[in-house]
Design a protein around this nucleic acid. Structure first.
Lengths: 198, 198
DNA sequence: TCCTTTCTATACTGTTTCGCATATATATTA
DNA sequence: TAATATATATGCGAAACAGTATAGAAAGGA
């Protein structure tokens, strides 16, 4: 017996994106339910019905961002192209994402907004930790493949190399939010690719 | 004509440290003046008289943290010891600082709490950017010296190397706040030292 | 047509927030 | 001692806040 009662007027997926954008620009603590309600075009009761309280909504946006990021990261590190090209495309995509806003740069949603809440909110901390681990693992898989293919010298510590590649991603996230210009971020990315793939 | 009127009962320097600790654990937005007032043992009117409004107080704590960090960073990168030892001691000191709390790890005060406010608060963004630039510059100076001393091969791009060393510091800051255990952070630090000083 | 179910709109409640106004305490100076 | 200058203590007040209660609207089912 599907479809009883009044149908919902919002698209949960779009609403989640709008809420994410609010949190991304303002952070969790400074984002009011009023602002979120307007951005998602959902009334507060509808927000509660769909996602739960403010923290649950925030965590849903974080998980969505993590899942999207995992997908694009896997795509870009598929192994179809040489490692140095794939790694460069990962950094380029990250920089585009971090500088996408017309206002001040937003950086990475996770590192920029979840880090501050992580100390006092264990759920947020765990989503953040899971995400960083997931990203690192995808990079590590590609690095292992690179050793097999001869793109990296045999004996390379792939876990170590992956953590360095991740570190550069973290640095791009922070520096974007600090207002670093695009060319500075691109220089860091080139440096990292050269260092890792030399 | 010094010392008129009732003398202050608080130590501005200690009060600033206490306020910094509140911001460090809770972030700017979620730190109430009530909590800050209790932590500093200053009434709200005294807080305003001494530091101005909440944002001015926050910026004062950020600048203090940056200045302290610059001093210790310069000390540890004085050139008295080999580069790999000095760099390792920088990372070790950072890890100690990031994990110092008895509760959840606080990471880096700047990256953990200023990054989230940077988008909407230009003053915070500028302090953050200045700080990252200052840290990077100190590392770069040491790297240049390392080339002169023969610790790094001639022709090394010292600016690039310094930005990688900084990136690892940023990653440690984020990963500490995500709850990564000490040994994971220490492994990243060792990896970075080996990569940079090999 | 009328009932049930589900979503939406409005408005409310009690709390917390920041910044400040007023009153009081403690020092120096005349 | 009186006057002045500065700091502290208490608490006010308007606004914002999160979450909810209640009423109304829009669909399907009988």
């Amino acid at each position: 017996m599907p479809k009883r009662g009044r149908p919902i007027e919002y698209d949960p997926s779009i609403a989640l994106e709008r809420a994410r954008d609010v949190f991304w620009a303002t952070g969790f603590a400074a984002s009011s339910l009023d602002t979120l309600s307007k951005a998602t075009k959902m009334n507060r009761p509808s927000l509660f019905g769909a996602f739960g309280d403010k923290e649950a909504l925030y965590i849903a946006t974080l998980e969505r961002y993590r899942d999207d990021s995992v997908i694009t990261l896997k795509e870009k590190l598929s192994g179809a192209k040489p490692l140095h090209k794939e790694l460069a495309s990962v950094y380029a995509a990250a920089i585009d994402l971090y500088l996408a806003s017309k206002d001040a740069a937003r950086g990475c949603f996770l590192i920029g907004t979840a880090a501050v809440e992580a100390v006092r909110r264990p759920q947020v901390r765990h989503v953040l930790a899971d995400s960083l681990t997931a990203f690192n693992a995808i990079i590590e898989v590609r690095m292992r493949k690179a050793v097999d293919k001869g793109e990296l010298v045999k004996g390379t510590d792939v876990a170590a190399m992956a953590s360095i590649a991740s570190a550069v991603l973290h640095s791009l996230a922070v520096r974007a939010r600090a207002g670093d210009p695009r060319n500075a971020l691109e220089k860091l990315a080139r440096t990292a690719v050269d260092l890792i793939c030399s």
